[in-house]
Amino acid sequence: MNDRAGEYKINLTGDLRYKSFLPKPLPPNPHIELDEDAILLLSKANRSLGILEGISRHIPDNDLFVSMYVRKEALLSSQIEGTQATLDDILDPNIEGNTNKNVADVINYIKASQYAKKRLNDLPICNRLLKETHEVLMLDVRGGEKNPGEFRSSQNWIGPQGSTLNDARYVPPNVEDMKEAMSELEKFLNNEDDMDPLIKAGLAHYQFETIHPFLDGNGRIGRLLITLFLMEKQILSQETLYISYFLKRNRVEYYDRLMEVRIKGNYEQWIKFFLLAIYETAEDAIATIEKIDKLHNTNYKAVEKTGRAAKTIKKVFEYLESNPIIDIKKTSAELGISFNAASNAVKKLIELNILKQTESSQRNRVFVYEEYLKIMRKDT
């Protein structure tokens, strides 16, 4: 085993004896050597992020788009951990009454992401921020009994269900080593150096997953860390980049490449994989924004031509862009318009082929902005 990334350490004795991984602090020694392919990927990833940042600043109602994107990322990130939910579940207008454990996981991820972004105004990325975000993520959901907001005080391990410390695929650092490693990671994240932020983000994500400081929720916090770091470095101003779909699609390779660093000290292959993830994700986000922008412009023009009622219809149409599944009662309450005004606006939007009714039940009719949802549902 190459010890560039760390080494295995023996804990306890006799029948209780086991080995845990002790990671070396970042940056790697010797330093990362980028070959031609990696340099090209780095330049493509940075260029695509620049384009994404530019166009996301110019889309109409950026906040609405971002709120949809945050929900999509929350869903994908939770799906990696085995959560069974769809985008339509998350957008259900009556979600409060229909929340099950799967949906609750995703809603908590959305809250954790929003909390962390706001907290970045007061704190740098540090262990305190990660713990606070973890508390929001794990509150009252599965795993909520596993010390939300606290680093673990017992040994954890990664492996198939039923595996033990001795046959686990990977055993993270013991509790003392974990605390030390998280303190070193905090320093690395906040050190002023000339390392490209994308490489730094990739190394930080690898190190966080390797340390596995929480009893549950490490994957979701580790993926959120990437976005938070790029926002802190002002490469992104909003949460428009999410690599969960790429990691979900390449899940086996993702875990194999993390192990390759631990076993062989080969950070370079991990960095290439990470840069490819950033590049493909940024390109995907650019394509999504362009499609949504085009759809918005087409439908907005149609709404503007609706005559006297255009003002109310426009209001409902704009509401649809962050709530593409609606019912009339909740829409009228949210927008502060009468039930009849909301109902008439919905009728008009159906005539314009913007909205479709889903359920035949007259009592609690639900309407869907299908074309918009089709774009956002991609990959979920």
Results as ranks from 00 to 15, higher is better:
Phe188Gln: 10
Ala104Trp: 04
Val136Phe: 05
Met182Pro: 05
Trp157Ile: 03
Leu185Tyr: 04
Ser163Met: 11
Gly162Ile: 09
Lys118Tyr: 03
Leu203Cys: 05
Ile110Pro: 03
Lys187Leu: 13
Arg119Met: 11
Leu203Met: 12
Met178Thr: 15
Ser163Val: 06
Glu192Met: 07
Asp196Asn: 14
Asp92Trp: 05
Thr133His: 05
Pro172Lys: 04
Glu176Asp: 13
Ala104Asn: 12
Arg152Lys: 15
Glu135Asn: 12
Asp167Asn: 15
Glu135Gln: 14
Glu81Ser: 04
Pro93Tyr: 02
Lys179Phe: 13
Asp140Trp: 03
Asp92Phe: 00
Ile199Tyr: 09
Asp177Leu: 10
Lys179Val: 14
Asp89Thr: 02
Asp196Tyr: 02
Ile158Arg: 06
Glu145Met: 08
Glu176Lys: 15
Asp92Ser: 02
Asp193Phe: 03
Glu135Lys: 14
Lys101Ile: 11
Gly162Ser: 11
Gly144Phe: 14
Arg142Ser: 06
Met182Asn: 10
Ile110Lys: 10
Glu81Asp: 06
Glu186Met: 09
Gly202Arg: 04
Ser67Asp: 15
Asn156Phe: 08
Gly143Ile: 04
Gly144Glu: 11
Glu73Ala: 00
Ile110Arg: 10
Thr133Tyr: 04
Ala85Thr: 10
Met68Gly: 11
Phe188Asp: 06
Asn190Trp: 12
Asp92Arg: 02
Glu192Arg: 10
Gly149Thr: 01
Leu189Lys: 02
Phe151Thr: 02
Lys146Ala: 08
Asn98Pro: 01
Arg119Gln: 15
Phe65Gln: 08
Ile95Val: 15
Met195Lys: 02
Asp196Cys: 03
Ile107Met: 06
Lys179Ile: 15
Val175Trp: 02
Gly202Asn: 08
Lys179Gly: 13
Asn156Ala: 14
Pro173Arg: 06
Glu150Pro: 00
Val171Glu: 00
